Amino acid sequence: MLVRVVKLSFKPEDIETFLANFETNKDKIRNFEGCEHLELWQDEYKSNQFFTYSHWVSEDALNNYRQSELFKNVWSKTKPLFNAKPEAWSVRQKAILD
């Protein structure tokens, strides 16, 4: 499993637009072949910063999503709202600590 974390920073006046677009598309993303989990997090202290946290069965599955019409549609509406370049990490779990 591949975990993808993406940091998104928005112009404060565009947060509601982003949230509406995410709400419209979250189930489509969650149901995209290869996506096993999707969450949206908001920074506790910088309310214009968000993080998507998703699980993918493989890097190929993630890349298929990133090349899909769904991604292109979501990204085309999200990209103009940024006030900083997004950052992304693909990570794999190495240990579980109890």
Rank of each mutant, 00 (worst) to 15 (best):
P12H: 00
T24L: 07
N64V: 04
A95Q: 14
K46M: 11
I15P: 06
Y65N: 00
K79D: 11
E39G: 05
F82R: 08
E13T: 12
S76H: 03
L19V: 08
Y65G: 02
T52D: 09
E36A: 05
K77T: 15
L40W: 08
N64I: 12
L62V: 04
K85S: 11
L81C: 07
P86I: 07
S76E: 11
K94G: 15
F22S: 04
F18H: 09
S58R: 00
W41A: 10
V91S: 01
L2W: 11
E87M: 10
D14L: 12
R4P: 01
K7G: 12
K46F: 10
H37Y: 14
E13W: 06
E87Q: 15
A20S: 13
F22E: 04
S58P: 05
E23S: 15
W89I: 11
L81A: 06
S90R: 05
V5T: 12
C35S: 13
L8F: 06
K28M: 06
L8H: 05
K28V: 07
M1D: 15
E13C: 02
L2K: 14
L97N: 10
H37I: 01
L19W: 01
E44Y: 10
L62M: 14
A61S: 13
V91G: 00
P80H: 02
Q67E: 15
E39R: 13
